[in-house]
Measured scan of single mutants.
Amino acid sequence: MALNTPQITPTKKITVRAIGEELPRGDYQRCPQCDMLFSLPEINSHQSAYCPRCQAKIRDGRDWSLTRLAAMAFTMLLLMPFAWGEPLLHIWLLGIRIDANVMQGIWQMTKQGDAITGSMVFFCVIGAPLILVTSIAYLWFGNRLGMNLRPVLLMLERLKEWVMLDIYLVGIGVASIKVQDYAHIQAGVGLFSFVALVILTTVTLSHLNVEELWERFYPQRPATRRDEKLRVCLGCHFTGYPDQRGRCPRCHIPLRLRRRHSLQKCWAALLASIVLLLPANLLPISIIYLNGGRQEDTILSGIMSLASSNIAVAGIVFIASILVPFTKVIVMFTLLLSIHFKCQQGLRTRILLLRMVTWIGRWSMLDLFVISLTMSLINRDQILAFTMGPAAFYFGAAVILTILAVEWLDSRLLWDAHESGNARFDD
């Protein structure tokens, strides 16, 4: 018995066209964080690309023209004298008006014999932002004059995390709450300039795509075929072959399989920071003279006294001054041990922890910024005066060393310790 099946006739004509040209192939790229070699397709503007294995951002879609970056830099340069030299806060102490600005706080630190601690604050609040705007201006002028731009481009990517104007702005709020127990506070004209400078700096850093600047100024022929001998440069993120001198053909720094002496430098910085954190938390970090009496505060006791007036601000200072430094030390110690013992479990967790400490590390400088600003506000000789204690130097040095330890660690070593050939990683 035959089955009668109805015929289905399409209502619209289906047209099949042959592909007349070869589909576009992607360029081969190595991930600078996990060293995976993959094919990167062509990316349009405002599109980002991520590593298929570790999800690290390979290409950032946010990109401004150099002219727009230069305009932002010149605007920031105009704001800087007002943000640093004009009063941020006014207080009335014992019937006398006192003005506080950024430069005055750094000068008070240096004047009291601790120039190293003052230079830490100076670099993060004044030096690094000033280098940022002058570097962008150098790129703008240098591109037109045919100057060598490689050193500036190499420095810009590392400079971003040292620009800490946003953290200093939080420190202004913390210092205001600490001082309000002794005097009446009012915002100064410099505060508005400083807030504007923070906003412009944040926007500029978020749109400063150094890798795209490398592509514009020093374009290189990408690798179009897969080759395990391809290496990625950690300076400019170019994937290719080393030249005859073993250097990256684009930025001219040595092109090595792994960062040289990464573990040794990381261990040295980490152990030194552990040693410095002990006096930083045991010795007094601030000293207040009130009517001839002397009151010393460690980091913890200062947080407890701050909690009596504002528990939320005390929580912020606790996280930045105690929780973050010790968390960074514990995480980095764990990561280094996992590399030495070739741990194969929990790779995803370790990668996330490394990215976390990379982002939060700079916030530990908050305590030094609060001390710097408070020193310029309260300084009335023996009637009422505020000065920093010996722990300030140890704390600042420990924070900087932990930042350097994270920067010096080559994250690809975590993958080397893991089993080879993993296309995915999980716990």
Rank of each mutant, 00 (worst) to 15 (best):
V121S: 05
I378N: 00
G61N: 12
A137K: 11
R62K: 04
F326D: 05
R412A: 01
Q244S: 12
T224W: 13
A405H: 03
A391R: 00
T117D: 03
I106R: 08
L404C: 13
C34T: 00
M109W: 01
W140N: 05
G389C: 01
Q33E: 10
V174W: 01
G292F: 13
L169S: 03
Y168N: 11
F425R: 10
R350K: 11
H46C: 06
T334S: 10
G396W: 02
Y28T: 10
K57V: 06
F318I: 07
S372R: 01
L277S: 11
F386P: 01
L234F: 14
R424S: 12
Q29K: 11
S372K: 10
L93P: 01
L88D: 02
F194W: 05
L336A: 10
I274N: 13
M109E: 10
Y168Q: 04
C248A: 00
E296N: 14
V16L: 05
I311P: 15
P81M: 04
V170M: 10
S420R: 07
S206P: 12
H184V: 05
Q382K: 03
I403Y: 01
V331I: 11
D63W: 15
T358R: 09
A417K: 11
F326L: 08
V198K: 14
Q29L: 06
R53E: 06
I303K: 00
W267C: 15
A115M: 02
C251S: 09
T15S: 07
L401T: 12
A391P: 01
T239H: 08
G118D: 03
P219R: 15
N143Y: 15
L165Q: 14
V275K: 06
H184R: 04
T204F: 06
L283N: 07
W162P: 01
A391T: 02
I319T: 09
I311Q: 15
L197F: 09
M80D: 06
I360S: 05
F194P: 01
L93R: 00
D60S: 09
S321M: 02
Y50C: 06
N209M: 11
R258G: 07
L414S: 07
I126S: 11
Q104L: 05
A417Y: 11
P32I: 09
G20H: 06
I400R: 00
G127S: 11
A56E: 10
V170P: 10
L191W: 03
L153Y: 04
V174H: 01
Y28F: 10
M356Y: 09
P41K: 07
F333W: 11
D227Y: 14
S338P: 13
P6D: 08
R221F: 14
K160W: 04
V324E: 01
R221Y: 13
F74S: 10
V357Y: 00
T5R: 12
F217R: 15
G292L: 14
A417W: 12
C31M: 00
A187V: 12
P24Y: 09
L169T: 06
E42H: 05
G105N: 01
M76H: 05
Q7N: 06
L306I: 14
Y394C: 02
L276C: 12
F122S: 04
I91P: 01
A100G: 03
D99E: 06
Q108C: 15
F425N: 14
I287E: 06
M304R: 10
V133M: 12
L300W: 15
L208A: 13
T204M: 11
S262H: 15
W359I: 12
L337C: 13
C124W: 01
S39Y: 11
E21K: 10
L156E: 08
A312S: 15
L40W: 06
F217K: 15
G190W: 01
G190Q: 01
S273H: 04
L255I: 08
K178Q: 08
Q220M: 11
T327A: 13
L277R: 01
L337M: 10
G85C: 04
Q382A: 12
W408S: 05
I339H: 09
L213M: 15
W363H: 05
F326H: 05
H184C: 02
M72T: 08
I400S: 05
W92K: 02
M76N: 03
S301C: 07
L347S: 15
V174E: 00
I274E: 12
G171Q: 05
Q108M: 15
F425L: 13
P151F: 03
N281G: 05
H252L: 06
T202N: 15
C251M: 00
P41T: 06
G20L: 05
L154V: 05
I106H: 05
D166N: 15
P325R: 00
L139T: 05
F393R: 07
F393D: 04
L337F: 12
W162F: 10
D410A: 00
L354E: 08
A100K: 02
W267E: 14
L263Q: 12
A272K: 00
R294Y: 03
A223F: 14
I253Q: 09
L368Y: 03
P129Q: 08
L197S: 05
I288M: 01
G26E: 08
N379L: 02
L37Q: 09
M72H: 02
L354F: 11
L384N: 01
C236Y: 01
R424V: 10
A397H: 04
P87D: 05
T75I: 08
L205E: 14
L354T: 12
T298Q: 14
N101E: 02
G173P: 02
V331P: 04
T224M: 13
C233R: 00
W162L: 03
L154Q: 02
D297N: 03
Y28Q: 12
S135H: 02
F333Y: 10
R424F: 13
W140A: 14
R412T: 01
T202H: 15
R17G: 09
W84H: 07
F318P: 00
L78C: 07
P222W: 11
D367G: 00
G361R: 01
P249R: 08
A71I: 09
F318K: 05
R260F: 10
D99R: 12
L276T: 12
W107F: 15
M120L: 03
T204G: 08
Q186Y: 04
G246H: 12
L337E: 08
L263I: 11
L77T: 11
I285F: 00
L94E: 00
G61C: 12
L282C: 14
W107I: 08
G118S: 09
Q180E: 09
N310D: 09
F318R: 00
K13P: 04
Q345N: 06
I274R: 00
I177V: 06
C233D: 03
W267F: 12
Q295S: 08
L323C: 15
I339E: 12
L337V: 11
L191P: 02
A391Q: 02
N101M: 01
G315V: 14
A405W: 04
L191T: 11
A417F: 12
E22D: 04
Q55M: 07
T202S: 15
L414H: 08
L23P: 03
K111R: 12
L208N: 07
S420A: 14
D297H: 06
D166G: 15
T201M: 12
W140T: 15
W415R: 09
Q345E: 14
D426C: 04
Q264H: 04
L404D: 09
F395H: 12
F217L: 15
K328W: 00
I96H: 09
A268Y: 06
L271D: 10
R30M: 08
L139P: 02
I43S: 06
S308Q: 14
F333N: 11
F194M: 14
L353Y: 10
S338F: 14
Q104N: 05
T15A: 09
L368F: 02
A312L: 14
P52N: 06
G421T: 04
A280C: 12
W107A: 09
W64L: 14
S321V: 02
V121K: 04
A405L: 02
M147R: 05
N44V: 05
Q180T: 14
G292N: 11
H340D: 09
H90G: 05
H261K: 05
I91C: 03
L145W: 08
I360A: 08
M332A: 08
S309K: 01
F369M: 06
T358L: 10
V152H: 02
Q220R: 13
Q104A: 08
W267Y: 15
A269R: 01
V102Y: 06
A115I: 01
W162N: 01
N44C: 13
S372M: 15
G113T: 11
G95L: 06
R97N: 15
S301E: 05
L278S: 08
V210F: 15
V179D: 05
G389Q: 03
V179I: 08
